[in-house]
Every structure is written in C-alpha cells, then in structure tokens.
Design a protein around this nucleic acid. Structure first.
Lengths: 140, 140
DNA sequence: GCTTAACCTAAAGTTAAGTTTAGGTATTTG
DNA sequence: CAAATACCTAAACTTAACTTTAGGTTAAGC
C-alpha cells in the first residue's frame, strides 16, 4: 500500500502566502524552512510541515521578530526536545513584547482618533482656527 | 513687557524622546520638523511647536508610516487651511491601517498564546511527543 | 588661556530584508 | 521541434532609516 504525500510547488506556496518567489527562496537559503527538500530535478517540493514552518514564519514576522531570530528558532526545532525550554522562553518573551506593541498601538490609535475628529471639524469649518483653540484643552 | 519663550537644546530633546542626536538632525534635514530655527551660533533651539512635531512623528512612526509620508504631512501643515482635506483623509486612512494592524497583532498574539501553552506543557512533560498529538486537534 | 562639553556639517558607511539580473534546466503545449 | 512556462543558482543591487566619521565652532569652567 502506497502512502500518498501531497506536496506543493514554490509557485503554489507563493500564491497561498502572498509572498514572492525570491522571498521564499531567500527564506530557504537563510535556513528558515527546516526539512525542505528538492526532487530529482532540483526543484523544491513543500510538504505540510514546510507549509507549517511558513505559517510560523509569518506569525513571528508579524510579531516583529527579525529573520536571524526566526532562523534560531527553526534551528532549535531541529534539535528536538533538548531545546524545548529555549523555545518556551522565546515564546514567553515574545508574548510580552507583543503585548507591549499592542499597548503602543492602542495609544497611537487614540491619538489618530483624536486627529480624525480634529480634522473632521476643521474641514467642516474650512479652517483650523476654531478647532485649534477648542480642542487644545483635551490634548495638551 | 517681554514674552518669555522657553526653548530646548537638541540634547534635551533627545533625552526627552529617547532618540539619538543624529536621528533628530536627520529628521530636521528631511524636513520633518517645520519651523525649527537655529540661534545666532547656528545651534538648533526647539520650541513647544517643534516638540509637538516630534510627538506627532513618533505617533506616525508607530503607526508604520514611512519618513517620506511623514514629511509630506509636515509640508501640508505648512500650507495651512488649504491642505486640511488632505490631512483629514490621511488620518482616516491611517486609522483603517492601524485597525488592520491591531487585528493582525491580535491573531499573532493568539498563536503565541497557544504556543506558550503548548511549550509549557511540553516542557513539563520533558518532550513534545504527547502535547503534539493532544493539542494538534485545536490548531490544524 | 586652555580644556571640556555640547553643538555643527557633509559625506560615507551600515543593516535588514528583500529584489533584480543574468544565465541555465526541465517539462509541457501548439 | 519550437516556444512558452515554471523552475533553478549566484551575485549584484536596492531601499529605508539611521549611524559613524572627520573635521570644525562656541561657551563655560578652572
């Protein structure tokens, strides 16, 4: 009985993730996609595991982690259970970092919301003159 | 009667914002700080207005806006009421962009939270073996 | 009057994260 | 079989956002 393993071409993966072909090749070259293999012709074939790595890469990139650190993490996964504590610590620190970023984002959004109101009124008035004095009290 | 206007040196401003001196000079050179003047000796003196510009720069940077666009905004402020609609539109678009970023951040945080639990259990177990199978169902 | 600290400019250098270029292979399609 | 399509590599290039370097001025303290 044959086990059917579905794999994907780099083009399909690029489409799926909205990444360019060179970007995916660059990630591979940098060691961000462990166990990514090539067929007899030297063409990359992506397994579900490799897709999973790319999903994790996207997550870590979104968290603001540099490529170098993502590579480190992927190398740790290759070390198996010996690196579990390092990976655990990494995610705990990342969690704190992301929470801080979200807090900063919220403050930024508050300022932008204020500016939307401010410029909304100013646009209505046709001038900044009045709104500048009225709304100045709320935001020193 | 003399009007006393307090101004700040570049060093004081750098300290206040946690920016380096070259960074502030760079922002000035790029036109990000409108109406920033120098004294007779050619030394920058920052007014409250200039401080306000730097606060806005920090906000816009946090929102992910590139220097080029921040410069554009600052040039608009120099045009006065004629550019009110452009500035209003800018902040409305920025608001949408930041909301999207926050949503992405929240998804990222959810994934990281899951990984924290995952690796917490794995670290406890001393192996990924069990947790891999148990928690796989929740996150395909 | 000399040194130290705080500022100045212009120009070159750095880093991250890709992108572009140039030249080549393998497979399907008219 | 010719041509289009999808892939490959290595190396050079790009861009943003600073940073570093080198050389110079000014004001304050000893």
């Amino acid at each position: 009985m044959q086990e059917m393993i579905t794999t994907y071409s780099i083009g399909e993966v690029a489409e799926k993730f909205g990444l360019s072909l060179p970007t995916i090749r660059y990630y591979d070259k940098e060691g961000l996609i462990p166990n990514l293999n090539k067929n007899e012709a030297g063409v990359r074939r992506f397994t579900e595991e490799n897709i999973g790595s790319l999903q994790m890469i996207e997550c870590l990139k979104n968290a603001g982690m540099p490529i170098r650190d993502i590579k480190q993490f992927m190398q740790w996964t290759l070390e198996g259970d010996a690196s579990l504590d390092k990976r655990y610590q990494m995610f705990q620190e990342l969690r704190v970092s992301v929470l801080k970023q979200m807090e900063a984002m919220q403050n930024t959004l508050n300022t932008i919301d204020f500016k939307c109101k401010y410029y909304g009124q100013a646009t209505e008035d046709g001038t900044e003159k009045y709104v500048k004095k009225e709304m100045h009290l709320e935001r020193p």
